[in-house]
Amino acid sequence: MQAPAQARDGGALAAGIIGGLALGGLAAAAASQPHYAYPAPAYGYRPVYYAPPRDCWIQRRRARDEFGNVYYRRMRVCG
């Protein structure tokens, strides 16, 4: 025995409508909030100083462990 045609797809239709409304609400909420690329200054405009890049290189340095063994390790040195 089959259900009438009107009642057979009602659950899927209701779930689709509710899911669409929920996703639409999330998208609208996300679009309404302001997004800043940089943080807003707290007490007026303050210029930001960016230091020039430093020269760095890899150098082998001698080290000892807690047992007194000597070993060499590569370390990044910036000058």
Rank of each mutant, 00 (worst) to 15 (best):
P52I: 00
D65K: 07
A30Q: 08
Y49S: 10
A7R: 07
R54H: 09
M75N: 06
G20P: 00
Q2E: 05
A30G: 10
L26K: 08
V77G: 00
D9I: 00
S32F: 07
S32E: 07
P52E: 04
P39D: 14
Q33H: 12
W57L: 07
V70R: 09
G19L: 14
L13S: 05
Y36M: 06
N69L: 09
G11I: 06
A3V: 11
A63S: 05
C56I: 03
A37K: 10
Y45M: 09
A29V: 06
A7G: 00
G24H: 03
Y50S: 04
A30H: 10
Q6R: 08
G19Y: 00
G79I: 01
A14E: 09
A15G: 02
C56W: 01
G10N: 07
Y38L: 13
G19Q: 05
Q33I: 12
Q2M: 04
C56H: 02
Q59L: 07
A42Y: 08
Q6W: 02
R62S: 08
A22E: 08
A37T: 13
P41V: 03
Y45I: 05
A31K: 12
P47I: 01
L23V: 13
G16D: 12
A5F: 03
N69Y: 12
G68L: 03
R64H: 08
Q33F: 12
V70W: 03
G79H: 11
Y72N: 12
M1K: 08
R64G: 00
Y38H: 14
G19D: 09
N69M: 08
V48W: 02
Y38V: 14
R64P: 00
Q59H: 11
A30E: 08
Y45L: 13
A5N: 07
L13H: 04
D65F: 06
L21W: 06
R76N: 12
R76W: 03
A5P: 00
Y71L: 05
I17S: 02
R73W: 07
P34G: 02
D55V: 09
R61T: 08
G10K: 11
R76T: 15
C78N: 10
D55T: 09
P41W: 00
A40F: 03
Y71S: 10
P52D: 04
P52L: 01
Y50F: 11
G16L: 11
G68N: 09
A5E: 04
G24M: 04
F67T: 04
P41I: 01
R54V: 10
P4T: 01
P39S: 13
E66S: 11
A28N: 05
Y45K: 06
G20F: 01
P47G: 01
W57Y: 09
R62G: 04
P47Y: 00
L13G: 00
G19H: 03
C78T: 12
R60G: 02
A42R: 14
A51P: 01
P4Q: 03
P34C: 03
V48C: 01
R61W: 06
Y36P: 00
R74L: 13
E66T: 06
A28R: 14
P4C: 09
Y36E: 10
R74Y: 13
A42M: 13
A12W: 06
I17Q: 05
A28V: 11
Y38G: 02
G24T: 05
P52R: 02
A14R: 14
I17T: 07
L21A: 13
G20H: 02
R76S: 14
D65Q: 04
L26N: 06
A27I: 13
D9N: 13
P41N: 15
R54M: 05
G24C: 03
N69V: 08
V77I: 15
Q59E: 15
P41A: 11
Q59R: 15
